[in-house]
Computed example of a mutant assay.
Amino acid sequence: MNKIILKNGIYGGLAVSAVMGYVTYSMKENPNMEPSMALGFGSMIVAFLFVLFGILQQKKANNDQISFGAAFKTGLLITLITSTIYVLVWLFIYYNIFPDFIEKYSEIALKNLSGAELSKAKEEMEFYKKAYESPFGVIGLTYMEILPLGIVFTLIYSVVGAFLLKKKQ
Protein backbone atom coordinates (compact mmCIF):
# COMPACT_ATOMS: atom_id res chain seq x y z
CA MET A 1 0.00 0.00 0.00
CA ASN A 2 1.16 3.46 -0.86
CA LYS A 3 2.73 5.48 1.99
CA ILE A 4 0.57 8.50 1.14
CA ILE A 5 -2.62 6.48 1.53
CA LEU A 6 -1.49 4.80 4.73
CA LYS A 7 -0.22 8.00 6.34
CA ASN A 8 -3.35 10.02 5.57
CA GLY A 9 -5.65 7.17 6.60
CA ILE A 10 -3.89 6.87 9.95
CA TYR A 11 -3.96 10.64 10.55
CA GLY A 12 -7.66 10.76 9.71
CA GLY A 13 -8.39 7.78 11.95
CA LEU A 14 -6.47 9.28 14.85
CA ALA A 15 -8.17 12.67 14.47
CA VAL A 16 -11.72 11.29 14.53
CA SER A 17 -10.91 8.72 17.22
CA ALA A 18 -9.38 11.31 19.54
CA VAL A 19 -12.60 13.33 19.50
CA MET A 20 -14.71 10.18 19.92
CA GLY A 21 -12.57 9.19 22.91
CA TYR A 22 -12.96 12.63 24.47
CA VAL A 23 -16.73 12.69 23.98
CA THR A 24 -17.12 9.15 25.30
CA TYR A 25 -14.96 9.90 28.34
CA SER A 26 -16.98 13.07 29.01
CA MET A 27 -20.22 11.14 28.68
CA LYS A 28 -19.02 8.46 31.08
CA GLU A 29 -17.86 11.02 33.66
CA ASN A 30 -20.99 13.19 33.28
CA PRO A 31 -23.91 10.77 32.85
CA ASN A 32 -26.40 13.55 32.06
CA MET A 33 -24.25 15.01 29.28
CA GLU A 34 -25.77 14.66 25.84
CA PRO A 35 -23.25 13.76 23.14
CA SER A 36 -22.76 16.51 20.61
CA MET A 37 -23.74 15.40 17.11
CA ALA A 38 -22.13 18.56 15.73
CA LEU A 39 -18.82 17.74 17.42
CA GLY A 40 -18.98 14.13 16.21
CA PHE A 41 -19.73 14.97 12.61
CA GLY A 42 -17.35 17.92 12.72
CA SER A 43 -14.53 15.59 13.72
CA MET A 44 -15.44 13.27 10.84
CA ILE A 45 -15.33 16.17 8.41
CA VAL A 46 -11.90 17.18 9.74
CA ALA A 47 -10.72 13.56 9.48
CA PHE A 48 -11.88 13.36 5.87
CA LEU A 49 -9.78 16.40 4.97
CA PHE A 50 -6.97 13.83 4.94
CA VAL A 51 -8.71 12.27 1.93
CA LEU A 52 -8.24 15.54 0.06
CA PHE A 53 -4.66 15.86 1.29
CA GLY A 54 -3.91 12.32 0.13
CA ILE A 55 -5.44 12.87 -3.31
CA LEU A 56 -3.47 16.09 -3.75
CA GLN A 57 -0.25 14.39 -2.58
CA GLN A 58 -0.83 11.53 -5.04
CA LYS A 59 -1.45 14.07 -7.79
CA LYS A 60 1.77 15.93 -6.95
CA ALA A 61 3.73 12.65 -6.90
CA ASN A 62 2.36 11.91 -10.39
CA ASN A 63 3.54 15.12 -12.14
CA ASP A 64 0.43 17.06 -11.06
CA GLN A 65 -1.90 14.67 -12.88
CA ILE A 66 -4.49 12.30 -11.51
CA SER A 67 -7.51 10.69 -13.11
CA PHE A 68 -10.87 10.58 -11.40
CA GLY A 69 -10.48 6.80 -10.97
CA ALA A 70 -7.07 7.09 -9.35
CA ALA A 71 -8.25 9.94 -7.12
CA PHE A 72 -11.33 7.94 -6.11
CA LYS A 73 -9.28 4.83 -5.36
CA THR A 74 -6.84 6.85 -3.24
CA GLY A 75 -9.65 8.57 -1.39
CA LEU A 76 -11.61 5.38 -0.84
CA LEU A 77 -8.59 3.57 0.61
CA ILE A 78 -7.89 6.50 2.96
CA THR A 79 -11.56 6.50 3.96
CA LEU A 80 -11.47 2.76 4.67
CA ILE A 81 -8.36 3.08 6.83
CA THR A 82 -9.80 6.08 8.71
CA SER A 83 -13.11 4.29 9.25
CA THR A 84 -11.46 1.06 10.35
CA ILE A 85 -9.35 2.86 12.94
CA TYR A 86 -12.53 4.58 14.19
CA VAL A 87 -14.30 1.22 14.47
CA LEU A 88 -11.37 -0.47 16.22
CA VAL A 89 -11.02 2.36 18.73
CA TRP A 90 -14.76 2.26 19.41
CA LEU A 91 -14.65 -1.51 19.94
CA PHE A 92 -11.87 -1.05 22.49
CA ILE A 93 -13.73 1.76 24.28
CA TYR A 94 -17.06 -0.05 24.26
CA TYR A 95 -15.85 -3.44 25.45
CA ASN A 96 -13.18 -2.23 27.91
CA ILE A 97 -14.17 1.20 29.19
CA PHE A 98 -17.86 1.93 28.61
CA PRO A 99 -19.77 -1.37 28.22
CA ASP A 100 -23.05 0.21 29.33
CA PHE A 101 -22.85 2.94 26.70
CA ILE A 102 -25.94 1.89 24.77
CA GLU A 103 -28.08 1.92 27.93
CA LYS A 104 -26.78 5.35 28.97
CA TYR A 105 -27.21 6.70 25.45
CA SER A 106 -30.78 5.37 25.33
CA GLU A 107 -31.64 7.09 28.60
CA ILE A 108 -30.27 10.40 27.32
CA ALA A 109 -31.96 10.06 23.93
CA LEU A 110 -35.38 9.28 25.42
CA LYS A 111 -35.49 11.60 28.44
CA ASN A 112 -36.97 14.70 26.78
CA LEU A 113 -39.33 13.01 24.33
CA SER A 114 -43.04 12.31 24.52
CA GLY A 115 -45.89 10.88 22.48
CA ALA A 116 -45.22 9.56 18.99
CA GLU A 117 -41.65 10.87 19.10
CA LEU A 118 -40.96 8.81 22.22
CA SER A 119 -42.53 5.70 20.74
CA LYS A 120 -40.46 5.95 17.57
CA ALA A 121 -37.26 6.67 19.50
CA LYS A 122 -37.89 3.70 21.81
CA GLU A 123 -38.14 1.40 18.78
CA GLU A 124 -34.90 2.81 17.42
CA MET A 125 -33.12 2.37 20.76
CA GLU A 126 -34.36 -1.23 20.98
CA PHE A 127 -32.90 -1.86 17.53
CA TYR A 128 -29.54 -0.46 18.68
CA LYS A 129 -29.60 -2.46 21.92
CA LYS A 130 -30.32 -5.65 19.97
CA ALA A 131 -27.55 -4.89 17.48
CA TYR A 132 -25.10 -4.16 20.31
CA GLU A 133 -25.58 -7.69 21.66
CA SER A 134 -23.16 -8.90 18.97
CA PRO A 135 -19.70 -7.59 18.07
CA PHE A 136 -20.78 -7.76 14.42
CA GLY A 137 -23.70 -5.47 15.21
CA VAL A 138 -21.40 -3.02 16.96
CA ILE A 139 -18.97 -3.12 14.03
CA GLY A 140 -21.72 -2.69 11.44
CA LEU A 141 -23.41 0.22 13.20
CA THR A 142 -20.08 1.93 13.85
CA TYR A 143 -19.05 1.66 10.19
CA MET A 144 -22.48 3.06 9.25
CA GLU A 145 -21.74 6.14 11.36
CA ILE A 146 -18.62 7.09 9.47
CA LEU A 147 -18.22 5.23 6.16
CA PRO A 148 -21.11 6.78 4.16
CA LEU A 149 -19.90 10.29 5.00
CA GLY A 150 -16.37 9.28 3.99
CA ILE A 151 -17.58 7.97 0.63
CA VAL A 152 -19.44 11.24 -0.06
CA PHE A 153 -16.30 13.25 0.74
CA THR A 154 -14.22 10.88 -1.38
CA LEU A 155 -16.48 11.54 -4.37
CA ILE A 156 -16.35 15.29 -3.86
CA TYR A 157 -12.59 15.39 -3.35
CA SER A 158 -12.00 13.08 -6.33
CA VAL A 159 -13.82 15.53 -8.57
CA VAL A 160 -11.89 18.44 -7.05
CA GLY A 161 -8.53 16.67 -7.37
CA ALA A 162 -9.04 15.28 -10.87
CA PHE A 163 -11.02 18.00 -12.63
CA LEU A 164 -11.29 21.30 -10.77
CA LEU A 165 -7.61 21.62 -9.90
CA LYS A 166 -6.47 20.49 -13.34
CA LYS A 167 -3.40 22.31 -14.63
CA LYS A 168 -3.73 23.94 -17.99
CA GLN A 169 -1.28 22.52 -20.46
Score class of each variant (00 low, 15 high):
G140K: 04
K122Q: 13
P99A: 06
G115K: 06
F98N: 14
L165K: 13
F92H: 03
S106C: 07
E145L: 09
V87D: 02
A121G: 04
A121R: 08
T154Y: 04
S106N: 08
I85A: 10
V159I: 14
V152I: 15
G137N: 03
I156P: 02
L91P: 11
E133A: 06
K122Y: 07
K120E: 14
V138R: 01
Y157S: 03
A162Q: 11
L155D: 03
K104Y: 11
S134I: 07
L88R: 07
I151V: 15
E124A: 15
E107D: 15
L110E: 02
I102G: 08
V152F: 10
E117V: 05
L147I: 00
A109L: 10
L155E: 05
L165G: 11
L141F: 08
V152P: 01
K130C: 09
K104N: 14
I151W: 01
L165A: 12
A116R: 10
L91D: 14
V138Y: 00
E124Q: 15
E103K: 14
S158Q: 10
V87A: 03
G161Q: 08
D100C: 07
S134C: 04
L155M: 13
V87L: 01
F136W: 13
S119Q: 13
E124V: 15
G137V: 02
V138D: 05
L118P: 06
K166R: 11
F92T: 09
Y94S: 08
I156L: 12
P99C: 08
I139R: 02
E107W: 06
I156T: 03
V87E: 02
N96T: 15
G150H: 00
L147H: 00
M144P: 03
V160Q: 01
Y105W: 12
S158V: 07
G150S: 00
Y128C: 02
E107Y: 09
I85V: 15
P148S: 04
A131S: 11
L110K: 02
Y132H: 10
I97C: 14
S158N: 06
P148D: 04
L110S: 02
E126I: 07
K129E: 07
L165C: 08
